[in-house]
Amino acid sequence: MALLRIDSISKSFGGVTAIADLSFDVPEGKVYAVIGPNGAGKTTLFNMLCGIYTPDEGSIRFRESEIVTLPPHQVAALGVSRTFQNLQMFFNMSVLDNVKVGAHLRSRTPLWSAALRLPQTRHEERQADNWAREALSFCGLEEYLRSEADALPYGVLKRVEIARALAAAPKLLLMDEPAAGLNDTETKEMRALIRRISESGITVLLVEHNMGLVMDVSDRILVIDYGSRLAEGTPKQIQNDPAVIQAYLGGEVQYAI
């Protein structure tokens, strides 16, 4: 069953078409990767999926409900979480608090109740704390619990962002270039982490440039170029697709192989 169904969406910015009539289904429980050359429209696509941009046309259905017109916080409330290509940490907070923000949707305490520290607030505070610690240890970050976010190296912060997204207990996790800027060891760890996330039952939608990683962790891959679908299939099918090879390496297909 498709968890996310994208049906002929288009988006252009002042006459420049970023996404043109794109359709695909993300099956539940799988790792689905979107790849394509720089400027192919991957980030635009991501921003539409999570409600930052509204497509000019088309429909995006998440678990059978239309999300095209929803603002990001309502998309998140349905069970979609994401990480960012360029870190979007809360640098004014500790690692633990960053991840606790991830658990925001799982508790209800309104402002006035928090202001007066009513018993419900204290209970939910303990819960949020537990959820955040769980997510941090899932990502292997226990040792950074108390650190301030602005004191940590890039590779660690990439994982903190994932922990923050996981603390929301999402059904779909959008990962925008999780391995960008990571060294080989960190990339290997990231690969294992993506697998663990998938095994825990969360559907992963991945945008990534590191082909080794993509081919290794993905169940299906969508290739886009100039905002439209170039190919779709299993990693093996994609690796042998002449159109993909042409787009990536240019020139004649026979030279590329």
Partner: peptide, 17 residues
Amino acid sequence: RALRALHGSEVAAEMMG
């Protein structure tokens, strides 16, 4: 935390619901 998140990164705060 929602207040501080808003300060830290508005887009990330939105994405956290």
